[in-house]
């Protein structure tokens, strides 16, 4: 269990930098078309912000913001978005992930529908990757401990 460190400098700098890391991760996800990035890279950077929070402020406070249950729900939502867009294309009459058929639903040209379809899929991938990375981080850093250890006198 990582207890809260009494190090003022690392805590203050982590608290200052975390929102900017999250915004940068969203930028990387959105600009996957034009520059290196996309879903997987943005998800990893989002998870890195949670790792920074966990290392500097202790695992208890991180659990209050992202518990294992919420991480499981978010990963399922990510997979639902990915599979849902593919299935929606199937329902509208094309193959799986044939984004051109979405143009009837969104009232745009098929080229723009393809672009928007890929963006939606990348968002689903980023959510799923972030949740799985957070779960892995929690699993590695709480090995061999039980919740009763927290309540002992320390």
């Amino acid at each position: 269990m990582i207890r809260e460190s009494d190090d003022v400098i690392v805590k203050a700098v982590a608290r200052l930098l975390m929102p900017f890391i999250v915004v940068y991760a969203l930028y990387v996800v959105m600009h996957g078309h034009y520059s290196p990035g996309g879903g997987f890279q943005g998800g990893v950077i989002l998870a890195a912000s949670f790792v920074l929070l966990g290392v500097s402020h202790g695992l208890g406070k991180t659990r209050r913001r992202m518990s294992e249950k919420v991480a499981g729900v978010i990963s399922s939502i990510g997979v639902l978005i990915y599979g849902g867009i593919g299935a929606l294309c199937l329902i509208l009459g094309g193959n799986y992930l044939h984004y051109g058929k979405l143009s009837k639903l969104l009232h745009v040209t098929p080229a723009e529908a393809r672009s928007l379809g890929i963006l939606g899929v990348e968002i689903g991938v980023a959510l799923a990757v972030m949740a799985v990375m957070c779960t892995v981080f929690f699993a590695i850093f709480t090995v061999g401990e039980s919740p009763e250890d927290d309540r002992s006198v320390e």
Binding site: V10, V28, S35, P36, G37, Q41, I45, A48, L52, V55
Partner: peptide, 15 residues
Amino acid sequence: DISMVYALLNFLGTV
């Protein structure tokens, strides 16, 4: 973009 991400990961790994 790659170098920004690498600066972040370097800092995080050291801490």
